[in-house]
């Protein structure tokens, strides 16, 4: 994952943001295709460094209740994968923020891994985040990603062994999805302390392997304060459930407003920060 060998648009965008990235998650097609495109463009304009578009799936074992409810209603109204590629094309036509697709693996397998990758690349997508595909099962995907110059984001968790972190660092391009807590997605009062320790471990393992790894922390972040906390020690903060809830309750204006307030957390020099550990982040950037 070294900077020299990558053409990762995601990585470039995170670096342009001074390694203080905000990544916003929204389910594609929710509540309908047009609105989901508007919402994604709105959060990009409001300050999201990258967009994470979730593919609705019948068995979302890694998602909490807010995202489950949104994706289930999207499936019930008859969501088709074709909408995903249309949405990616429509969003990338209107914003420079890279669009990553977050998908459980069976829809990709069924569609055909290479065919999916080709369609995604043609639509202007940046790559895939794969919550239930770990590096040891990712051979076919990694080859396709290489062929189509797509980012591949794998997860690291507080429980991951050093060997598993090494594998995630090696296989990932774009960033390593740093799972902040051991729970499923859903806004929490506090982003877990475990996230800081994990982000540090990922940086150490990458350095030991003679490379670098961008670390974006997700699961449980819901306000600008938490974004700022996370950006003390990580390169990006990923917000999902809170945005989805805002979209569901107040439509595009609400999601834009929340994204703008989250983006305040990406601004440097938080009042309460004595020392934002510049050495540590600098070493990995």
């Amino acid at each position: 994952m070294s900077a020299a060998s990558t053409s990762s648009r995601t990585e470039a965008a995170i670096r342009r943001a001074g390694n203080r990235a905000l990544i916003g998650y929204l389910p594609v097609g929710y509540p309908d295709l047009a609105t989901s495109v508007e919402a994604a463009v709105a959060i990009a304009e409001a300050g999201c460094t990258a967009i994470e578009l979730g593919v609705p799936y019948s068995d979302p074992a890694m998602d909490g209740p807010v995202i489950q409810a949104a994706t289930q209603s999207t499936l019930e109204r008859g969501f088709r994968l074709e909408e995903l590629f249309d949405a990616v094309a429509a969003i990338t036509a209107r914003t420079d923020s890279p669009v990553l697709v977050m998908t459980y693996w069976n829809p990709v397998l069924r569609y055909g891994v290479d065919r999916f990758a080709a369609r995604l690349a043609a639509a202007g997508g940046a790559g895939l985040i794969t919550p239930d595909l770990t590096p040891e099962n990712a051979g076919e995907w990694l080859e396709a990603a290489e062929r189509h110059d797509l980012d591949r984001v794998f997860l690291a968790a507080p429980s991951s062994s050093d060997a598993r972190i090494d594998a995630a660092v090696r296989a990932s391009r774009g960033f390593v999805y740093t799972v902040s807590t051991m729970g499923t997605t859903g806004a929490r009062q506090d982003v877990d302390r475990a996230a800081r320790a994990l982000a540090d471990r990922i940086a150490e393992r990458a350095a030991a392997a003679g490379t670098t790894a961008l670390r974006c922390v997700g699961l449980g972040i819901s306000d600008g304060e938490q974004v700022r906390d996370v950006l003390d020690y990580a390169d990006g903060a990923i917000v999902g459930s809170a945005l989805v809830r805002a979209l569901g309750e107040g439509g595009v204006p609400a999601v834009r407003e929340l994204a703008a307030s989250l983006a305040l957390g990406t601004l440097d020099g938080g009042a309460d920060d004595a020392a934002p550990a510049p050495d540590q982040k600098g070493a990995n950037a």
Partner: peptide
């Protein structure tokens, strides 16, 4: 068969 699980559960599965 195989093991197709989210990373947070891999340690427990192993």
């Amino acid at each position: 068969g195989g093991v197709f699980m989210p990373e947070p559960l891999m340690a427990a599965i192993d």
